[in-house]
Design a protein around this nucleic acid. Sequence first.
DNA 1: CCATTGACGAAGA
DNA 2: TTCTTCGCCAATG
Length: 111
Amino acid sequence: MKNRKKPARSRKSTWEAVYEIARQIPPGRVMTYGQISRLLDGRISPRYVGFAMHACPEDVPWQRVVNASGGCSTDRLGGGEKGLQRFLLEMEGVEFRPSGSMRLEKYRWEP
DNA sequence: CCATTGACGAAGA
DNA sequence: TTCTTCGCCAATG
């Protein structure tokens, strides 16, 4: 084949790789930003995973991606409905502690 | 090409 | 436990 091989991350937008993973998260389970970063073999930093999710298409269950503390950073943004992410997760059967965090040990999903 | 930006993570105070 | 600091890397203008 021709030598025209672009860097792997340019094959698709680096963000797209994040979406692919997020779409595989089953209901009632969650993944952390850092976890996704590691699954991508460090091609993208945890910071940017979250940033990618912010611009994610609608077919991505962004709600199932939380920070390493098991909390919803999105709720802090106040961009719209406060607690929307938490609300959606509770619909899927995820329980939150009063502190606003979930038990990651229980809900974290690993492929 | 350069500066800015971000929904993070881990470690330290 | 909360807050701060640093590292991290790609997208945007």
